[in-house]
């Protein structure tokens, strides 16, 4: 009876959701001028209506060439601060729940191929991760994917080396980088009275050194997410006493 009811509820939800799908306008048929995103794309929130040229336009209200980044870390930076906090809370919870467990050991040598390949690939993985978050305001990517790639490197280290332990410094890095993000917001509050204000000049669009505090925040997020997920991996490598 219980199963039947659950199936009935799930079926009802599926029908409702399929019904809702019809309400969404077709692809390409949306009047963008009625949406706030139009101003994000044209970078015209403050009323600037000039056309934007790559590597030429200077001192725009927002200097990142990647439109996703300009929304995520500039126009709606507060949401990103919140998302960073969600990940932080989740990692903290894993730490609290798995507290007091030891590192799981298999007591056998990892595969030779894995160990050798690790020596060659690890610097490249880290370099690629750093590239992704340093260029977050220019190319697709940013702090979250970059940090995840770095944490993937740590996972490879864990798999290829039975004795590897993440040092306590990863926790300090995680905490410090989160603090840096909030401090950037507070510096804006002190300098101009507005929390998370982009207080640096935005420069020429498309240059590496542009977009004000956006790349700095993305570097902080990259390190934070990398350290956080690495900590998660090290927590999940543990086992309970039996």
């Amino acid at each position: 009876m219980r199963r039947f009811l659950s199936a009935l509820i799930a079926l009802g939800l599926i029908i409702i959701l399929l019904e809702f799908l019809n309400l969404i306008p077709d692809f390409g048929n949306v009047d963008l001028s009625k949406r706030v995103s139009n101003s994000f794309i044209n970078k015209s929130v403050d009323g600037n209506n000039e056309t934007i040229e790559f590597k030429k336009s200077k001192d725009l209200e927002d200097g990142s060439a990647n439109v996703v980044t300009s929304i995520v870390v500039n126009y709606r930076s507060f949401d990103t601060l919140g998302e960073v906090t969600v990940l932080f809370t989740a990692a903290l919870g894993v730490g609290l729940i798995l507290k007091g467990l030891r590192r799981k050991r298999f007591y056998r040598e990892p595969n030779f191929i894995l160990k050798t390949a690790n020596g060659i690939l690890l610097p490249l993985i880290f370099l690629f991760g750093a590239y992704i978050f340093i260029h977050g305001h220019l190319t697709p990517g940013g702090g979250f994917p970059g940090g995840t790639i770095i944490a993937a490197g740590i996972l490879v280290l864990y798999l290829s080396n039975e004795k590897f332990e993440l040092s306590h410094r990863a926790k300090i890095l995680e905490s410090g980088m989160g603090t840096v993000y909030v401090l950037f917001g507070l510096v804006g509050l002190i300098l101009s009275g507005i929390f998370l204000r982009n207080f640096l000049p935005t420069g020429v669009i498309g240059e590496l050194f542009s977009a004000g505090i956006v790349p700095l925040i993305y570097v902080a997020i990259g390190f934070k997410v990398g350290a956080e997920l690495s900590n998660l991996i090290s927590e999940f490598q543990k086992e309970g006493q039996q």
Binding site: V45, Y75, S77, G188, S192, I194, L196, N198
Partner: peptide, 11 residues
């Protein structure tokens, strides 16, 4: 207005 973006655009 967080970040200084006026009402419907920012948070």
């Amino acid at each position: 207005n967080i970040g200084g973006w006026k009402a419907p655009f920012g948070i």
